[in-house]
Write a protein that binds this DNA or RNA. Sequence first.
DNA 1: GGTTGATGTGTAAACGTTTACATCAGCAAT
DNA 2: ATTGCTGATGTAAACGTTTACACATCAACC
Lengths: 334, 334
Amino acid sequence: MPVTIVDVARKAGVSTATVSRVLHKSPKVDATTRARVRETLEELGYSPNIPARSLVTKRTRTVGLVITTIADPFFADIVRGVEDVAIENDYGVILCDSNADPEREMATIRLFQEKRVDGIIVASSRVGDLYLGLLEKTKVPVVLVNNEKTGSYVYSVGTDDVAGGEMATEYLIQLGHRRIGYIAGLADAKSTYDRLTGYRQALRKHGLPFDSSLLAPGNARPDGGLSGMNQLLTDCPSLTAVFCYNDLTAIGALKALRIAGKSVPDLVSVMGYDDLLFAAYSEPPLTTIEQRKYDLGAIAMRMLLDLQSGVESVSNNVLEPRLVIRESCSPAKS
Amino acid sequence: MPVTIVDVARKAGVSTATVSRVLHKSPKVDATTRARVRETLEELGYSPNIPARSLVTKRTRTVGLVITTIADPFFADIVRGVEDVAIENDYGVILCDSNADPEREMATIRLFQEKRVDGIIVASSRVGDLYLGLLEKTKVPVVLVNNEKTGSYVYSVGTDDVAGGEMATEYLIQLGHRRIGYIAGLADAKSTYDRLTGYRQALRKHGLPFDSSLLAPGNARPDGGLSGMNQLLTDCPSLTAVFCYNDLTAIGALKALRIAGKSVPDLVSVMGYDDLLFAAYSEPPLTTIEQRKYDLGAIAMRMLLDLQSGVESVSNNVLEPRLVIRESCSPAKS
DNA sequence: GGTTGATGTGTAAACGTTTACATCAGCAAT
DNA sequence: ATTGCTGATGTAAACGTTTACACATCAACC
């Protein structure tokens, strides 16, 4: 039913090869034929069949994108970055929300393989070592976001989370805080540990002891922040500041503090991470560490594009985080 | 390089037709051959080439999804719904963030066409009438989310926004409010007007006059809520409640009120719409109208699936909104 | 011991492209 | 008049599947 290249060829009185050539702007075609073919293309409303083309070119102009969950605005921005550069280059993005479910992730990877995507971007912080091997076997280039496992065909782009964690903690220390809590993210995410490492480095640098009772588990979501903060409040009533794995965790912590009647930042300072849209709208507005979320996605996609076109110089990228000061942190009362 | 069906056929000593048959669980194949082929499939690590298959079946097992912007968590939930049922059925979803840019939307639709998607879900509230015609021409089924333009090949699923707007407004009226503002969403979105219609219906029902100075423009984002609220505060200082197009608008309004020193809900009640994750975490927690965002996406995808399998009974769906009472609205002080 | 029917398997065409190679026309140089 | 180019175009194979159709085998029947 849809019009094919042979319909066009017949109507324009040329061969399919010629039509294909004008479609690809090949120089080897006479100006008048080109014009005639163009006209016929237009007239018939031809639309190329990409799957058919892929069969011979072995390129699908499609990439796969795996993320932990689109419900987290942090990932939403990464997706935007990927999308934007993809569409600019006539690429399609197949999105897959892994929901942190390993089985689901495997299904996703299998789907990507079967669809013969040209590359895969994985922004699911947990990157099964399980399937990294599987990925390498397929020989399709992979770019990891905020994760640094490497191997052949595997590249990465990320934020320096150790530096971010250190920056956040150091700011609190400089405000005079001595008892600073940390509410963690997903237990198996690299970023959770990197930020914790930064936190410990800052403490050490300033000669402060590390006290594991100041650590609370979280889940990178508000409910985890709420429960983590509650735990901290009972375990360490003396704390005066808390560094949260991310902004979602922070708004949970803010709620816990509000319920407990501890005013922020007067009694407790709260530091977030990510600088999501709503960070500027919370009460109080959140002091946080900015990650260039959009750029993370855009760069990842560009790396894939470079890889496609054979640019060998693709290097692993690390972006620097930045402190954004708002009103949720204030000097410690002595 | 990758192993094909003929590699498998050769190695298993059968024809490609037979391999294809076991791949499709056709009953017409002997148990022992089936076992042998299965084994070979496994051994060689065969992965079907979907683009090649599509060429003959004319099905790509891929759908296109257009949304206004993934930065709005409302759409993120729709995406989750679509994704979930898609992957369950071995479908891939090509996501496209239109950014409310018509040119971009056209590029997207073209891409979808060329990739020969099996169906398209449009959750971009503005649905160019421009390209609806274009869509019909391609004869690929389309499901519109929260939008009701209809035509052949076009189906829809949405929330009853008029009812939602009425429900929100009526609740405020019942709390004793008489001067109720409305901060709008994107100017060309149907939902903006539907919710406004509901608002007006509620006023009429209760014999309250409609006063256009109680209307402020917005943009479905926090900054629009902030400026809209500021406008309302200067134009109508007597208002005691405001109905916001969505929760994002509401958090902007909350911030404006905080800055103006008007306490919520004591002096001004604020009503949201959508019931996003953070609605329960704002200060004060937001009273809002819940939309079944996830279901909107899941149903849309299921409709597409039904359409694929020739189920003719696909009907347009409308979901009922629900009032979620938290703490941002209280009885009007008399 | 044919005929029938069922069952399992193979053959080959088709899907819509791209592209290596062949062909051809025109023309300049010999 | 032949040769050799050059540039434009056509021919046909290839990509990896699915599937209509044909074929072969075998059991069961009269």
